[in-house]
Amino acid sequence: MPEITYVRGDATAPQGKGVKLVAHVCNDLGGWGKGFVLALSRRWPEPEAAYRRWHRERADNDFGLGAVQFVQVQPHLWVANMVGQRGMRTGSKGVPVRYEAIDTALGAVADRAEELGASVHMPRIGCGLAGGRWSRIEPLVEQRLSRRGIPVTVYDIG
């Protein structure tokens, strides 16, 4: 089983050869304006535009916790918009991160990565503004991706 590779760097500039899938967590409110999504939008306009359209048309699609939208940004590069947080603020129900939704979304990412023959690249998803703990998310990444033989690289800005 391949281990998760940890590197210092920028997940919007994924390292290595072949097809790559950059996975990150979005909220379920249609908001895109803080955290890792800003770095994504600086590099490519398509993920934000696709996410906003997906949210706007949610009555007619699968938008919601656990859903994933795959957006191609270059011939061998995709972005996975994973809906893994409820709302944007810590409140009476705790932090916005939803581990079950991230788990479900990672399963869909694994399926697409296998179809594409892609490696998966991500920041420490769900651990920034979403308020999650990597100690809870890392086992989900290992179970859903690494155990299926999908190479995963996690980027820490350094």
Rank of each mutant, 00 (worst) to 15 (best):
M1G: 12
M1V: 15
M1E: 12
E3R: 14
E3P: 13
I4S: 00
I4C: 06
T5S: 14
Y6S: 02
Y6C: 08
V7Y: 10
R8L: 02
G9Y: 06
G9L: 04
G9M: 09
A11R: 08
A11T: 08
A11I: 03
T12A: 10
K17R: 15
G18N: 14
G18M: 15
G18H: 15
V19C: 09
V19H: 01
V19L: 07
K20S: 11
K20I: 03
K20D: 05
L21K: 04
A23H: 11
A23S: 12
V25M: 15
V25L: 05
C26V: 11
N27I: 13
N27D: 09
N27C: 13
D28Q: 00
D28H: 13
D28P: 02
D28T: 00
L29D: 13
G30N: 00
G30V: 12
G31L: 13
G33V: 11
K34D: 03
K34E: 11
G35C: 05
F36G: 13
F36E: 13
F36C: 05
F36K: 10
L38N: 15
A39V: 02
A39Q: 07
R42C: 09
W44H: 01
E46R: 02
P47Y: 05
A50C: 01
H55Y: 14
H55A: 06
R56W: 07
E57I: 10
R58L: 06
D62S: 02
G64C: 09
G64W: 10
G64N: 05
G64V: 12
L65W: 08
L65I: 14
L65P: 03
G66K: 01
A67D: 08
F70Y: 04
V73C: 05
Q74R: 07
Q74K: 09
Q74M: 02
H76G: 13
L77M: 11
W78H: 04
N81R: 09
V83W: 07
Q85F: 06
Q85R: 01
Q85M: 15
R86W: 11
G87I: 01
G87M: 03
M88R: 08
R89K: 08
T90F: 02
G91I: 03
G94Q: 12
E100Q: 14
I102H: 04
D103R: 11
L106K: 10
L106C: 04
G107D: 03
G107H: 13
A108P: 10
V109A: 12
D111S: 09
A118N: 14
P123W: 14
R124T: 01
G126A: 07
L129P: 10
L129W: 02
A130P: 01
G132S: 04
G132H: 12
R133I: 08
W134P: 14
W134H: 11
S135E: 15
I137L: 14
P139A: 07
L140I: 11
L140V: 02
V141H: 06
E142H: 14
R144P: 05
L145K: 06
R147L: 07
G149Q: 10
P151H: 15
V152E: 00
T153P: 00
Y155L: 05
Y155M: 02
D156R: 08
